[in-house]
Design a protein around this nucleic acid. Structure first.
Lengths: 204, 204
DNA sequence: CCTACCGATCGGTAGG
DNA sequence: CCTACCGATCGGTAGG
């Protein structure tokens, strides 16, 4: 009984280990550019061993992207049905939460979630797109609440939503935790810029 | 004499043709995911023919990315040394010019310029990064002029520059010329949002 | 967790 | 001596 639990635990640990190493490799060399031999080397094992934990290379990619996207969604899902908090605070929370989780993931598998969607099976790709739709929906809910309260004014909610999430996401290309500004400071700059962009007081 | 000119002309036409087809393929399947056989198929020729125009697959990628980046830079370089035009108009011109050229390139080789930098030789990668630095520099000049004139107020020029260019660039993932809004209308929404974001009048 | 392989396909080049 | 292109194949490596 205990031995069985311990074995299952070890399996999970090994899976995590492989996903982390593979994610870094995918980020550095792309999905097609990373071979199972390279992943095995990074994991300090043989290629064949990987197949004890994953059915295919595609499944590893799926788990990497899914984990990544789920973390992103869960960083903002506390806003999903929040109809009481001030919409300005909600926007601040949204921007800073997503950016913070992104900064924590760092140097690994962030933009892979964009560019390697094409390498997923139809089923897996649909599952990821569903997660993203939920993220986009929460974003638009926050904007909608600010419009309803008269605090936000936008020409097009959908486009503004895309512009905000694009800026946050692509920060993984230029932001470093060892840079000039802290994660919190950069998050503040982002929020300030984006809030001004939709502040109803600026539109009259 | 005339025959030689015609031959050189044909070479240029064929190179353009290959670059266009390869660019589309790279966008759809990635660089590593596209084989020379597939590129040849798309070009309606044999793989070996491609080598009459390009030394290697990497050189094709380089030309695709270079062409793409050069188009982007030239869409905004009229602002490089413009110290007379109103900075607000300069921002509008920057945002709309870049977005328009992006919308015209469409469904081909736009985000490849990001993700396939790793597949270039060191020399080629440096050349592309130099072009990008020039784009970023022009962006910051425009912001700087607005700050000097008192029309813009930003917490951090560099970050705001990245946020703006990120939103424009990633539009290639969601914008379609056959969508709800025209290229010009979407460009206006973008400019309105970004100008409000840095409008000095909103910051007091 | 390993060695030993498979069918196929990779980027690139041979002679004619 | 050039180009554009053929069928076949080079040395290596892919996922499994």
């Amino acid at each position: 009984m205990k031995a069985k639990q311990s074995r299952e635990m070890q399996t999970l640990v090994n899976k995590k280990w492989i996903l982390e190493k593979a994610g870094t490799l995918f980020w550095q060399k792309g999905y097609d550019g990373s071979s199972m031999r390279e992943i095995a080397n990074a994991c300090e094992c043989r290629p064949a061993n990987i197949y004890n934990y994953f059915k295919s290379k595609e499944e590893i990619l799926y788990e990497v992207i899914k984990d990544n996207t789920e973390q992103t969604v869960s960083s903002v899902e506390h806003l999903e049905n929040d109809e009481t908090t001030d919409p300005v605070e909600q926007l601040k929370s949204f921007v800073k939460s997503h950016f913070e989780i992104l900064a924590r993931m760092k140097r690994s598998s962030v933009l892979i979630s964009d560019t390697a969607l094409k390498d997923l099976t139809d089923e897996h790709r649909k599952a990821i797109i569903q997660l993203r739709d939920r993220y986009d929906s929460i974003m638009r809910q926050v904007i909608r609440r600010g419009i309803d309260s008269g605090q936000f004014a936008v020409k097009d909610e959908r486009i503004v939503g895309y512009l905000i999430s694009s800026g946050i996401l692509r920060s993984s290309l230029w932001f470093s935790t060892r840079g000039r500004l802290s994660t919190d400071e950069v998050g503040d700059v982002m929020f300030d810029f984006y809030f001004s962009g939709i502040n109803a007081k600026c539109k009259s």
